[in-house]
Design a protein around this nucleic acid. Structure first.
Length: 425
RNA sequence: GGAGAGAUGGCAGAGUGGCCGAAUGCGCCCGCUUGCUAAGCGGGUGAGGGUUAAACCUCCCCGGGUUCGAAUCCCGGUCUCUCCGCCA
């Protein structure tokens, strides 16, 4: 959520930002409601002040004077309540609209409508060339008996899967390897609630707007998270942190659930786009300072690149364009990993910075060196998401006979195995 | 799931209709002081809105209500604790 004061003082910045993000919103209506609310609130407060004053005198009054004052206050109280209820309903509308205003993107965000206009910043690693007919992850999975989509579909519907045997072990291994990597970087490992309240979804800016993407447990009004970012960023919500606690670096392991509404027919084969996966997410809470949060943005980007380097996978980093940014994001770098079967770099990681957009909604604050209470800046990035990452992992590392090379860094987690041999028929 | 108790400032803990944004203690900050291993003394110390600054308004878990007036009374919700049941 934007600071209402900021909107009031910089309506053009907000309008232009929304245009760059291709998000529709009504800044003028916000300004109009704001001025109405302020005017009415002033009226209500002055009546309230008068009432407070008179009401304090009542106990010391006697007889008629006392009765008169009580009578007058009864009337004044009714007037005040009437105005107050107007303020309340207008303010509710104002807050609702305020939630829909997107955070203006940074100047260095490229213009563009969707992911096709993201700008490549650099590319790392070597795209493999196979001197044999390459197999996709489905075929490799079959040779190794790693996945089962048919039975999953019968049991759980579309976009579901079983991981089995080496597939199951590979997922656990990449997750644990990544977690260890982050712990070595000073992040606190966390296993987080996968089911959260609406406030956490709103606080992290997935709602309003993303309701269609989330599974809702209607009986309990809880939501399955699409990422550990939601509970992690909400973790200290409503608190005032001590300066010494910043930066707070958290690293959460969770299952992630996505309805993939509106994606019908897209990426229907295999492990790319599925309803449930496991992910490790890194989150940083830092002081309210553009330069500091930009620095941490680079840091969390690097952490994830190192994971891909450990997995010996070729990838590129893109600067995400305005139209592909979420409502709260100021800037986002995606990491796309080379997937031979897709003949493309495809998204495996997404690193965002938010300024105080999330922390303002969450009430996530700290006391700065001068003792002033300020909103934190928040950032997050994928560390690893599986099974999507298994696609590049097994496809890039396949050998002619269908065996799969296990990267050095992963071997300790795979019981020392350096090559996965296909199951014999 | 059933029965009961509770939720107050960083923490502990008073407060059952006005003198309460809230005693007291601890913690923390500032200053003073003292030679005896650390203490003593004085002052300060929640958040949001509003104002040039003040005044002023709001907040004692959240949301309603009663009342001239609510931390305090009533209703609904959330969370915590205890006992019983169930259970990975």
């Amino acid at each position: 959520m934007l600071d209402l004061k900021f909107v009031r003082q910089n309506p053009d910045v907000v309008r232009d930002g929304a245009i760059k993000k291709h998000i529709a919103c009504d800044v003028d209506q916000v300004l109009k409601l704001d001025s109405e609310v302020r005017k009415l609130r002033a009226e209500s407060e002055s009546k309230k002040a008068e009432q407070n004053k008179a009401t304090k005198a009542i106990p010391s009054l006697q007889g008629d004077e006392k009765m008169e004052t009580i009578k007058a206050m009864k009337a004044l109280g009714a007037e005040q309540k009437a105005i107050e209820s107007q303020v309340k309903s207008l303010d509710e509308e104002l807050q609702r609209l305020l939630l829909t205003l997107p955070n203006p993107p940074a100047a260095e965000v490229p213009d563009g409508k969707d992911d096709l206009e993201n700008v490549e910043m650099r590319s790392e690693g070597t795209i493999p060339t196979f001197d044999f007919d390459q197999r996709d992850h489905l075929e490799l999975g079959q040779m190794h008996d790693m996945f089962d989509f048919e039975r999953a579909a019968r049991i759980a519907g579309s976009r579901t899967y079983f991981l089995k045997n080496a597939g199951a072990l590979l997922e656990l291994s990449v997750l644990r390897m990544s977690m260890d990597h982050m712990v070595a970087k000073g992040f606190s490992p966390m296993i987080v609630p996968n089911l959260v309240r609406r406030e956490a979804m709103e606080g992290t800016a997935y709602f309003p707007g993303g309701e269609d993407q989330a599974y809702c447990t209607e009986r309990d009004d809880l939501f399955l998270i699409g990422t550990a970012e939601v509970p992690l960023t909400s973790y200290r919500a409503g608190e005032i942190l001590d300066m010494s606690e910043l930066p707070t670096k958290l690293c959460g392991w969770s299952n992630c659930y996505r309805r993939e509404a509106g994606a019908a027919g897209r990426d229907t084969r295999g492990l790319y786009r599925i309803h449930q996966f496991q992910k490790i997410e890194q989150v940083i809470l830092c002081p309210n300072d553009e330069e500091i949060s930009k620095q941490f943005h680079q840091e969390i980007l690097k952490n994830s690149e190192e994971v891909l380097q450990m997995l010996e996978l070729p990838y590129r980093v893109v600067n995400v364009c305005g139209g592909d940014l979420g409502s709260g994001q100021v800037q986002k770098f995606d990491i796309e990993t080379w997937m031979p079967s897709r003949e493309s770099f495809s998204e495996t990681h997404s690193a965002s910075r938010f300024h105080d957009f999330q922390s303002r909604r969450l009430g996530l604050r700290y006391r700065d060196a001068e003792g002033k209470v300020r909103f934190c800046h928040t950032l997050n990035n994928t560390v690893i998401a599986s099974p999507r990452v298994l696609i590049p992992l097994i496809e890039n590392h396949q050998q002619e006979d269908g065996s799969i090379h296990i990267p050095q860094a992963l071997r300790p987690y795979m019981g020392g195995v350096s090559l996965l041999e296909p199951k014999k028929k």
